[in-house]
C-alpha cells in the first residue's frame, strides 16, 4: 500500500516537474516583448473598437501611437481632445486641439414614409438596395432607409427617424465616422459642431439637374446658386449640380437658409422663435418648417 502511494506520488511529481520545465522553456522561447506604454495608452482609450480611427481597434490604435511616438495623423474621435491630451501626456508629445465634429445626415425626409414611390421587399441593407434601384423615395441620391448607418454606430447615436431618414443624436455622436463609411450613398458627412452647437448645412446630395432633382424630391437642392450669391463668407460652392457649405468658412448667419427656394438648407441648434417670417408668401404658410433637427415630422406635413 505504502509502495503504491509512493509510486503514484513519484510519478505525478516527476510529471509535474517535467511539465514545469517544458512550460518554462516554451514561455522563454516565445516571449513577446511589448512596450508597456501600449497598455497604458490602450487604457485611456474608450475601448469601443469603433474603427473610426481607421485601425482595427483600440489596441491597434494604441500600438500605432506608440510606434510613431506622436499623434500625427491619428485621432480618436470618440475620445476627443480629452483622450488626445492624455495620450500626448503619456507619449510626451504635443497635440493640436481638434474641433469637435458631429455626423450630419444630408437628406430631406420629404419623400419617405407615406410618400414612397415603390415598396422595397428585399434584404434590409442599404448597401444591397443601392445595387438594385433608386430606393423607395425614387431619388437616386437619397437615403435608402435600411439603416446600415444605425447598425454601424457603436455609440447608439443614430436612429431611424419616423420618416425613414436617420436622425443623429449630437450628444451621443463621437464623430467616429463609422456611419459615414457605412452609407453607400455618402449622405452622411462629418461636420463641425459649431459655436453653441449651431450649424448650417445643405441637406441634399442630389447631383441631378434642377428639374430632374425637383421631380425626385420637393426639397432637393436644384443648384440654383442663390445661396452662394447671398453668402457673405464665400463659404458656399455649387459643383456637380449640388451646393455645398464649407463649414470651416461658414459663420452660421443663415442668409442661405432663408434664400433657398426648396428648403434644402437646414440650420440646427438655433432657437426657433428667433426666426423671422420669410418674405415669400408660400414660406409664410410654412413657419413650422423652420428647422430644428427633431421636428422632422412636422416638416413633411407642411409639404404635403
Amino acid at each position: 500500500m505504502t509502495q503504491q502511494i509512493l509510486i503514484a506520488v513519484l510519478i505525478l511529481g516527476a510529471l509535474g516537474i517535467f511539465f514545469a520545465v517544458v512550460l518554462y522553456i516554451v514561455a522563454q522561447k516565445f516571449k513577446v516583448v511589448e512596450d508597456p506604454l501600449i497598455d497604458e495608452v490602450a487604457e485611456v482609450l474608450p475601448g469601443a473598437n469603433c474603427g473610426g480611427c481607421g485601425k482595427a481597434g483600440c489596441r491597434a490604435f494604441a500600438e500605432a501611437c506608440v510606434a510613431q511616438h506622436s499623434l500625427d495623423g491619428l485621432r480618436c474621435a470618440p475620445g476627443g481632445d480629452a483622450v488626445a491630451a492624455k495620450i500626448a501626456a503619456l507619449l510626451g508629445c504635443v497635440v493640436e486641439q481638434g474641433e469637435p465634429m458631429v455626423a450630419v445626415v444630408r437628406c430631406n425626409p420629404a419623400n419617405c414614409g407615406d410618400k414612397r414611390k415603390s415598396n422595397y421587399d428585399g434584404l434590409r441593407s442599404c448597401a444591397f438596395e443601392n445595387t438594385v434601384y433608386t430606393g423607395e423615395s425614387g431619388c437616386p441620391f437619397g437615403c435608402l432607409g435600411c439603416g446600415d448607418c444605425v447598425a454601424a454606430c457603436q455609440f447608439n447615436a443614430i436612429k431611424m427617424g419616423e420618416n425613414g431618414v436617420p436622425v443623429v443624436d449630437a450628444d451621443k455622436c463621437t464623430a467616429c465616422g463609422a456611419c459615414a463609411k457605412a452609407c453607400p450613398r455618402k449622405i452622411i458627412e462629418l461636420r463641425n459642431k459649431g459655436k453653441k452647437d449651431r450649424r448650417v448645412y445643405v441637406s441634399c446630395v442630389n447631383r441631378e439637374k434642377g428639374a430632374v432633382a425637383m421631380k425626385s424630391c420637393a426639397n432637393a437642392c436644384i443648384a440654383c446658386g442663390k445661396c452662394a450669391k447671398v453668402c457673405p463668407m464665400e463659404a458656399i460652392t455649387v459643383e456637380g449640380n449640388v451646393s455645398y457649405i464649407d463649414y470651416k468658412k461658414c459663420i452660421a448667419c443663415r442668409k442661405c437658409v432663408t434664400e433657398c427656394p426648396t428648403k434644402a438648407i437646414h440650420d440646427v441648434g438655433f432657437p426657433a422663435p428667433a426666426v423671422k417670417p420669410a418674405p415669400k408668401p408660400e414660406a409664410q404658410a410654412a413657419p413650422a418648417a423652420e428647422k430644428v433637427e427633431i421636428p422632422v415630422a412636422e416638416k413633411v406635413e407642411v409639404k404635403s
Partner: peptide, 13 residues
C-alpha cells in the same frame, strides 16, 4: 431568408 440578396451583397463586398 433572402439568401441570394445576401450573397450578392457579399460578392460586391
Amino acid at each position: 431568408k433572402p439568401l441570394t440578396d445576401e450573397i450578392r451583397l457579399g460578392k460586391n463586398k
